[in-house]
């Protein structure tokens, strides 16, 4: 049996997994417009969005994209998971790779 010690590379990507649907599409569209490096992947039941270092979701912009009012509790309904450090504010969620 090989006994290699793991080599763990530090990563600075952050991301979210959103439950698939029109709200996730709208959120992905706002990210695609503001983050040229974003990687957006579609899976059968969710959308994965990955961005280097830091990403912010603005509720207002998702609402504009949807063409109807939208709020934070509803966005949290589709936010299935994230990777990074999360900060939830009144109208935006920021996920960053830094600790502390």
């Amino acid at each position: 049996m090989s006994s290699e010690t793991p080599h763990i590379e530090e990563r600075d990507n952050v991301g979210v997994k959103l439950i698939a649907g029109e709200e996730a599409d709208a959120a992905a569209a706002t990210v695609a417009a503001s983050y040229p490096d974003a990687v957006i992947e579609h899976y059968p039941a969710y959308i994965s969005i990955e961005v280097p270092k830091r990403v912010t979701f603005e509720i207002e912009r998702i609402a504009e994209q949807l063409g109807r009012p939208y709020d934070m509790p509803t966005f949290l309904v589709i936010l299935s998971s994230y990777n990074g450090r999360i900060n939830v504010e009144d109208n935006r969620i920021t996920i960053s790779s830094e600790l502390g």
Binding site: I8, E10, V14, E98
Partner: peptide, 14 residues
């Protein structure tokens, strides 16, 4: 390895 250990645990070294 990538998300948890690389994206999080490794940063605890400091």
């Amino acid at each position: 390895l990538e998300d948890f250990y690389g994206g999080f645990y490794k940063k605890l070294e400091k």
